[in-house]
Amino acid sequence: MKPAQFDYYAPASVEEALDKLAELGYEGKVLAGGQSLIAAMNFRMARPGSLVDLNNIPELSYIKPTADGGLAIGTMTRVYAVEHSPEVAKRFPLLPEVAHYIGHAQIRRRGSFGGAIAHADPSGQLPGIAKVMNAKCLIRSKGKEDRWVDAADLIIGPFMTVIEYEDLLTEVVLPPNPPRTGSSYQQVARQNGGYALAACASVLTLDDKNKCQDARLILMGVGEMPILSDKVKEILIGQEPTEEAFKEVGEAVQSEIDPSSDLNGTSEYRRDLIRVLVPRSLALSLERAKKGS
């Protein structure tokens, strides 16, 4: 299991990287953390002609507060760094909660935050989490205006995004949550560190009358890409968040998902998991929203 030949470039700055990507076009591929890409290359299932390695660009690794109280995360920030950042934990406890489930620690030490989103693995957690957090992605390329793309519009299919060959996802910005917001993640996987058979994350915001001001729910592993639920909004916004309502959401989202069957689970089982996990996640988010200042 040895990778096929490729040419290697290690730009020292974003500008250099953009130059190289523009020059290589279709032949070029970005090497971020490499924890999915290199495994695929070892199987020779991926065989890029050239790799543009971002690991020598220190300016791509950072976690910075934004003016409005959100966070900007550089694309090469390691998942492990996100998982253990006090800044992240304070503002977005959902992120470390989820990050903990991504592969094993050694993978998270190397795997990059932006890379995991851009990879758009339908079984991966971060693309969906970016969506449910209303993240905005900065995409840059040589000779073009910088583009801000909503995470919700970034992914267009399994392993497919609007990021072109000459583009680079450089930063992910997470907008702040209003007060009295709670979030949680629920998944069932065969093993720790493995892909989820089905997963969901919810973000609930309460108004001063303890009614749902906002409700966001992402459903993962049950379609070709993470599914941002509309039903949750229809059912919960403006309503009292009750256990019954949460159960109703679990039922209603059945029309939004389209899980397939594989070695680890049937489509029916995955549907049933969503039915179970959605109310569990919503209940936990509610509890946290109530505690949230």
Binding site: L197, G265, T266, Y269, R270
Partner: peptide, 11 residues
């Protein structure tokens, strides 16, 4: 067995 199979057996 796996969780999905247990689900199917239960059904």
């Amino acid at each position: 067995l796996n969780p999905s199979m247990l689900y199917e057996f239960r059904n």
